[in-house]
Design a protein around this nucleic acid. Structure first.
Lengths: 238, 238
DNA sequence: AGATTCTGTGACAAAGTGTGTCGGCGGCCG
DNA sequence: CGGCCGCCGACACACTTTGTCACAGAATCT
């Protein structure tokens, strides 16, 4: 499984974003960028991020408070970046929960080494810790996140494979939205699509067989021709 | 699927509009322009916009308040443009919810790079967040947006294809208005018409077969000779 | 290691969409 | 009033996208 890690660069300077982005892409990472905290949250809502490079100085919400709030509800590894002369902040940064710290200017070699190191050690649960719903309800189903189980209203547990569960979770967390195959693959498998990738179709088909009343006339996961799929059932979080 | 993104330029200076417009068209984007907030809303009501370039200084309603109100009810990506020397406004702009910020003068290369970056990350649905109706009623039908279903008053669900649903939705959101083929194609498919494009006619024909009592004598979707089509049934939002 | 489950790929069928053609109808002009 | 021109409706067809199945390699379990 060649799951290239997905790195998110958060920095308000475009030159930095582009420079770092190019360096990481060349190393085989998948990269997204954001100029501020708001953009960062947006990216995180739409894709599965493995590690965040976070600039200390940001317009609006600054890096430290972002770091703290990230730590509060998502164990995603963070590497803090700071302008030189802000050495003092190292301690603060690490105390805020960053996994590593890198003062600018830094070489791409050093950055990449640290990223790999953090990723290797950060195999930890990226299980969000805070206010994530314990389970979701939709149609006549309850999806139990902790137990990774799908339970029907009559109490029967329908077994889901790992892939089916991850895909269903991706859907359930983003109902009423058209998700294309790339996004689904990223969200559910953490990897990018190869050309003519039909694996999502197959998984959707398998999932429908288990959750739809009539798999031939799906009501919960609808196909958007040329666009992807949409989870159309109403979802309630608990 | 050549779904060229549709960019809306909002600036009161004609030269800027023309200049930027030409640059974007050359890059393959579809472009609309507006000189002020009122014109902007009009364009947005008539077409599906993927991204807005918004000048900070505008006559009447200024860019910042426009930005805020856009953010309030339509997650459309925004890039703010400002005259030089207004650096201070960057923070304000981003806090108001702009996705990026570009001080004048800027090169077209830089502008295009930022547009692509924002579009890439803003892959998401431009699903307005605010008070969108859950469903629309007309004639003897109910169109359920979340479920993407068309239900007759007797409770029977009539299956619509993706294209039929999107077209019907475009109509239902703009009843009693003449919509030409370009607009319909833009609203329902997000693309521009190619020469001698008859696809809308075909889709209207298919749609009529499903919703009209007598498809040969349509009462709901009327043809405007030489102009397009009009959704003539009364629509109520719920 | 052997058995079992899971997942992605290829193949083929089915559905959705757009283009082309033909014929009809509306509007325009004499 | 009649004929011409251009626009629209309907249909057939080609092409694209999706559904599903079988199967093989990968992963996991025993």
């Amino acid at each position: 499984m060649t799951a290239a890690p997905h790195i998110l660069i958060v920095d308000d300077h475009r030159e930095i974003r582009d420079l770092v982005s190019r360096a990481l892409v060349k190393e085989g990472f998948r990269v997204s960028t954001a100029a501020d905290g708001r953009a960062m949250r947006k990216v995180m809502a739409d894709s599965r991020i493995d590690l965040i490079l976070l600039d200390l100085m940001l317009p609006g919400e600054d890096g430290l408070s972002l770091c703290r709030s990230l730590r509060a509800d998502s164990g995603i590894p963070i590497i803090m970046l700071t302008a030189k002369g802000e050495e003092i902040d190292r301690v603060v940064g690490l105390e805020m929960g960053a996994d590593d710290y890198l003062p600018k200017p830094f070489g791409s070699r050093e950055l990449i080494a640290r990223i790999r190191a953090v990723l290797r050690r950060g195999q930890r649960s990226d299980q969000p810790k805070a206010d994530k719903p314990v389970h979701y309800r939709f149609d006549r189903w309850r999806l139990d996140i902790a137990a990774r189980e799908l339970v029907r209203d009559d109490g029967v547990t329908v077994p889901l494979s790992t892939g089916e569960f991850d895909l269903l979770l991706a859907f359930v967390e983003r109902p009423q939205r058209v998700l294309n195959r790339d996004q689904l693959l990223d969200l559910a498998r953490g990897r990018a699509a190869s050309t003519f990738d039909r694996s999502i179709d197959t998984q959707v088909s398998r999932l429908r067989k288990k959750i739809e009343r009539d798999p031939a006339d799906p009501k919960i996961i609808k196909t958007v021709w040329g666009g992807g799929y949409t989870f159309t059932a109403a979802v309630s979080r608990e």
